[in-house]
Simulated assay, not measured.
Amino acid sequence: MQLNVFDNLRSSVLVVAAIAAGGVATAQSTVAPGAIYTMTNATDGNAIAIFDRGLDGAASYVGLVPTGGTGTGAGLGNQGGVILAQSDRFLLTVNAGSDTISVFRVDEYGLALTSVTPSGGDLPVSLTQHDGLVYALNAGSDSIAGFRLTFDGSLVPIPGSVTGLSALDAAAAQIGFAPDGDFLYVTHRANNLIDRFAVGPQGLARRVVPMTSNGATPFGFAFGQRDQLFVSEAAGGADSASTVSTYRLGEFGQLQTVTGSAPTTQTAACWVVASPDGRTIYTSNTGSDSISSFRVGFEGELRLLDPQAANTAAGPLDMALTLDGKFFYVIDAAAGVLGDYVVNDDASLTGIPGGSPVLPASVSGLAVR
């Protein structure tokens, strides 16, 4: 039987009491091999929904932990709204309704809220971090802002780091560091652009350089092996028209096309993740209620493995893979559930029997450890 998370929150006095006291919220969680996190993005108080991850990959609901901020109550059109940082010692989330970022300390029993900090702009939707340097994408103000993540879980704004995107009204979806931390990239859903920022030694992002995306509506992205970048292209939601492009990162961060707009044959491919070994990527196709899989060649070339590696519940959004690549998770926002899957040797996905609580349709972001 599915359980409404808001009913659970009202009955989970221990969770709320722990946060109010600045302690760790366990919600009676037992020690598990790992955990999964997403956020409700609720207007009356954003919260992190915690799931234990079993040895078989099955997700079991633990409880909600308030973020100290508010959401928008609607989809954010983003990737990267919830991230883990510093070897999974901290969890960061955007509060898009209150223009803040929350940081939690992570341990095997739960989360402890350590700070809530202004995001440096309007409508934060995506976060990225590299070696203690955090950048936020503020989609409402078409800007990015930088912070230092301290050992105690505070976010310290970097003076002079607020920088505009290359174009206004970008409907920007994601910000991400290159693997070496020398460059930042931002996708523009509305302008069909990908911005590149050079990151200086003091953590300041400068010299924004835009390039035109191979396909329309560049959305989510993920980095692979050998300086490869995979970008989903939603094609404005056109039926069965979504694509994925691969780029190689040049010496100065420039993006060189390897495979341009490989078709998924599905609708609204908006989110993308890469397997830990870099050999497979997946897209979640919100309009088709499916996950597509691609095989990645040595140079980053793409070959469609299965346009429907999994059929999901309604409205799949953010995805995440475990570090060992054995288990796969996806938020099915329109259905209000978290889907959990075993990753087979051929990269196909097998659903794990069971059910998850009823999450709000505004749910956004996904991180797993």
Rank of each mutant, 00 (worst) to 15 (best):
G200K: 05
T150M: 01
Q174T: 08
A170G: 03
P218R: 04
V162I: 14
L193K: 02
F223S: 05
P118N: 12
M211K: 09
V208Y: 09
A171V: 08
A96K: 00
R196L: 12
T100Q: 12
V106G: 03
V156I: 13
A222V: 10
S161D: 14
N191F: 04
R206S: 15
P218Q: 09
F151D: 15
L111Q: 09
G200I: 03
E108T: 06
V116N: 13
I144Y: 02
I175R: 11
G140Q: 04
I175C: 05
G153S: 07
A222M: 08
S166Y: 00
S98A: 13
N214Y: 00
H188I: 06
G132V: 04
G181I: 01
N214L: 12
D180V: 10
S141E: 11
R189S: 10
L149T: 05
I194S: 10
V156R: 13
F177A: 04
D142R: 02
E108Y: 02
P159M: 15
F223H: 13
I158Y: 00
A96H: 00
A170F: 04
A145W: 01
V186K: 02
Q202F: 11
G215S: 02
Y135T: 10
P124R: 12
E108M: 03
S213T: 07
S166L: 00
V134R: 01
S102V: 01
T114I: 05
P210Y: 00
I158S: 01
P118A: 14
A112C: 14
G203H: 08
T217H: 07
D122N: 14
L111M: 12
N214R: 04
T187D: 10
L193R: 03
R207L: 13
G164H: 10
G120P: 01
T114S: 14
V134D: 01
H188V: 13
G140H: 05
P159L: 14
V106C: 14
G120C: 01
D182Q: 15
A170N: 13
P159E: 15
A136G: 02
S161F: 11
T128L: 08
D131Y: 09
T117V: 14
S126A: 09
Q129C: 06
L111A: 12
I194K: 09
G121Q: 12
G176T: 08
P157I: 06
S119T: 15
G120R: 07
S166A: 15
G203Y: 04
H188E: 09
N214M: 14
D122G: 00
P118Q: 07
A178T: 14
V156N: 06
G220R: 11
G164V: 03
Q174N: 06
F177G: 07
A190N: 15
V156C: 02
L133N: 01
D107T: 07
